[in-house]
C-alpha cells in the first residue's frame, strides 16, 4: 500500500512574482517552503507558505484557485516556465509536490499576456475570454423552445469530437504558453464544439466571424502553428481545432461576402 504519511519530507525555494496591483511594478521574491509532503498539491504547498508568511506579518501570496480538481479553470500559475507546471494534461491544482525534488528552486509567475493584465501577484484578469464568448460562443435556444432531444440524431463520432473540444476549461494556459499570446486554441475549441453539431449550423458563420474578430480586437496575437498551446493545455485539446477554425473563418468570410442577404430582417406585421 502507499505509505501516505511516511513519505520523506523535503524543502524547496520559491521564487514568486509579487505585484501589489495592476499599475504597480512587480518583482521576484524568494521564500523557503519547508517540510513538504510529496503528496501535497502545489496549491496546498502555497497554502502552507501563505500561513507562514501571514504569521511573519508578510501579506500572503495572492493566487487564483477554486475547485482544486482541474475543472473550473481558475488556477493559473506559470511554474518553471511552463503554464500549469511540469505535468502533461493537468492544471496547477493537479500538480503534486512529488514532481519536484529537495533543494529545487521553483519559479512561480502569473500567466502573462497583454490581454490578461495582472491583478495582484499571481492573479490575472481573464475577462477577455468572457467577452469572446459573449460575442458568439453560443447556440441561441431560449428555454422552452427546444425540440425533443432525440429528434436530431448526431453521429457518435461527431458528438465525441465536439466533446473533445467542449472540454476546454477556459484557464488561459494556451495564451500563456504561446509566444504570440494567441487565444486561437481557446476560441477554436468553442467554435469547433458548436460548429461540429447540427444544432450549431444556423449560427456557424456568424459565430466564427464574431468570435475571431473579437479575439483580435482584444489584443491577442496570431497563431504561428507551433502548438505550444495544445501541449500546455490541461485538457490536451488538439490544435486540429485551430485548423478547423481557420477553414471555417475563411469560408464564412467568403460566404458572408457573396451570400444573398434578405431585404428585411425585422418582424413587423399587424
Amino acid at each position: 500500500m502507499v505509505a501516505v504519511n511516511t513519505q520523506k519530507l523535503f524543502s524547496v525555494t520559491l521564487r514568486v512574482w509579487r505585484q501589489a496591483g495592476p499599475a504597480q511594478p512587480g518583482k521576484f521574491v524568494e521564500y523557503p517552503a519547508k517540510d513538504l509532503n510529496p503528496n501535497m498539491s502545489f496549491l496546498e504547498m502555497l497554502d502552507v507558505v501563505n500561513d507562514e508568511l501571514a504569521a511573519q506579518g508578510i501579506e500572503p501570496i495572492a493566487f487564483a484557485h477554486d475547485c482544486r480538481e482541474g475543472i473550473c479553470g481558475t488556477c493559473s500559475c506559470t511554474i518553471n516556465g511552463k503554464p500549469h507546471g511540469p505535468g502533461k494534461g493537468v492544471a496547477t491544482c493537479q500538480t503534486y509536490m512529488r514532481s519536484f525534488s529537495d533543494g529545487d528552486t521553483i519559479v512561480v509567475e502569473p500567466f502573462r499576456a497583454r490581454a490578461f493584465p495582472v491583478i495582484k501577484d499571481l492573479v490575472i484578469d481573464r475577462a477577455a475570454f468572457d467577452k469572446i464568448q459573449q460575442a458568439g460562443g453560443f447556440i441561441t435556444a431560449r428555454a422552452g423552445s427546444a425540440p425533443e432531444a432525440n429528434a436530431l440524431p448526431i453521429a457518435k463520432g461527431d458528438a465525441d469530437l465536439a466533446m473533445d473540444a467542449a472540454q476546454c476549461i477556459g484557464c488561459g494556459a494556451c495564451v500563456a504558453a504561446c509566444k504570440n499570446a494567441s487565444a486561437m486554441l481557446f476560441v477554436s475549441a468553442k467554435v469547433s464544439h458548436l460548429g461540429l453539431l447540427p444544432q450549431g449550423q444556423a449560427e456557424r458563420d456568424r459565430r466564427v466571424l464574431a468570435m475571431v474578430n473579437t479575439m483580435d480586437a482584444l489584443g491577442f496575437g496570431s497563431c504561428t502553428n507551433q502548438y505550444e498551446c495544445s501541449a500546455a493545455c490541461p485538457k490536451l485539446i488538439s490544435h486540429d481545432f485551430i485548423a478547423r477554425m481557420n477553414r471555417d473563418y475563411v469560408k464564412a468570410s467568403f460566404r458572408s461576402a457573396f451570400k444573398a442577404a434578405p431585404a428585411n430582417t425585422s418582424g413587423g406585421g399587424a
Partner: peptide, 22 residues
C-alpha cells in the same frame, strides 16, 4: 425531460449511441 431537450438544443455534447441517439 424538458431539461434534456433544452441542453441538447444548446449544444451540450451528451454521450450518444452509434445510431446517433442519446
Amino acid at each position: 425531460v424538458n431539461i434534456i431537450d433544452q441542453c441538447v438544443a444548446q449544444g451540450v455534447p451528451f454521450a450518444r449511441e452509434y445510431g446517433g441517439l442519446l
